[in-house]
């Protein structure tokens, strides 16, 4: 039976996390449909149709589906679930918010944050902040799964020829209402999709000092991340946080600056291809997992690194 992927999107753009979820879906079955639920999302529908391997794009359009309100979107997903053996969404804040609601309405035990598909009913997922990997088998009729986007390649954005089908958008539950949002805008690549990430911790000492990392990120074309300590101290906004309870990133290069390497931080970046650590404490645990560790004062090392890379 087919797989339904719930598209994550912003306004008019399909999120890269959806592409990774399509890849996970194709590891389960060749018949992959995508649900685009939202308010006026023609552009997203077009993008979804073009994704390689997508058979059909089902569209639920309505004002009450704006901003991905879980109460309203879950009803649409539940209405379609009978056609599928699997319903997948990215394990982003969008999918994490929505999917357990879907699962409970279907009386299904969700499988969260899957990093590998073993078979149609068996999946691998990290537990204990990634200190262990559990292989779990589901006996439920429909498998409701969230997918860790960094664990799967992104499906190609072209080559697909999905058909479009309008589906019942349901109505407003009246339970919840979107009020407003403060999204962090940046010209940099998106943190979870960037090939290079420069992350700062408490060692930076202040929000102003993050300028040093911005200069480094500028020469590398990198995204900027942070430890929880740096976010809690107010140096940078919450959406910079990498870790067990923040974002999971897996770039080609991760540069950790003034970050000690707590297990909760490692959970969010240990999948990076190459890890560089810059820390003045030679015993900092981050060095145990770093491919290249440089012991030194970040206030000297980072500007020098920026200069050398820029030249």
């Amino acid at each position: 039976m087919a797989v339904l992927v719930i598209a994550e999107h912003e306004e008019s753009v399909l999120a890269p996390s959806t592409l990774a979820t399509v890849t996970a879906a194709r590891a389960i079955d060749d018949a992959v449909d995508v649900l685009v639920a939202g308010d006026g999302c023609e552009a997203v529908v077009r993008q979804a149709c073009a994704v390689e391997g997508v058979r059909r794009v089902r569209v639920a359009d309505g004002g009450h589906l704006a901003h991905g309100l879980a109460e309203n979107v879950a009803t649409v997903v539940v209405g379609l679930a009978g056609d599928y053996a699997h319903v997948l969404a990215p394990a982003s804040t969008f999918g994490k918010n929505l999917m357990p609601r879907v699962a409970a309405l279907l009386d299904v035990q969700q499988i969260s944050d899957v990093t590998a598909v073993e078979s149609a009913d068996t999946f691998v997922r990290p537990i204990y902040a990634g200190n262990a990997l559990a292989t779990v088998q589901s006996g439920d009729a429909v498998k409701v799964v969230t997918v860790r986007p960094t664990a799967f390649e992104k499906a190609a954005e072209s080559g697909g020829a999905g058909e479009v089908e309008q589906v019942d958008a349901g109505s407003d539950s009246g339970l919840s209402r979107f009020v407003d949002q403060q999204l962090t805008s940046s010209d940099r690549p998106e943190l979870t999709a960037a090939p290079i990430v420069v992350s700062g911790g408490r060692g930076l000492g202040s929000g102003e000092n993050f300028r040093l990392l911005e200069e480094l990120a500028d020469v590398l074309g990198a995204a900027i991340g942070a430890s929880r300590a740096a976010v809690d101290a107010g140096y940078v906004p919450n959406d910079y946080q990498v870790g067990q309870t923040g974002k999971v990133v897996a770039p080609d290069l991760y540069i950790a600056v003034g970050i000690s390497g707590a297990i909760q931080h490692l959970a969010g970046m240990e999948g990076s291809k190459v890890i560089v650590a810059i820390n003045k404490d030679e015993d900092a645990p981050i060095f145990e997992i770093a491919d290249y560790g440089l012991v030194g004062d970040l206030f000297e090392v980072v500007p020098e690194l920026t200069r050398k890379l820029g030249s």
Binding site: S92, F94, R177, D180, Q181, Q182, L183
Partner: peptide
């Protein structure tokens, strides 16, 4: 706390 920043909802 959402991936893009902050969002407020009324329940």
């Amino acid at each position: 706390e959402v991936d893009g920043g902050l969002e407020t909802v009324a329940l």
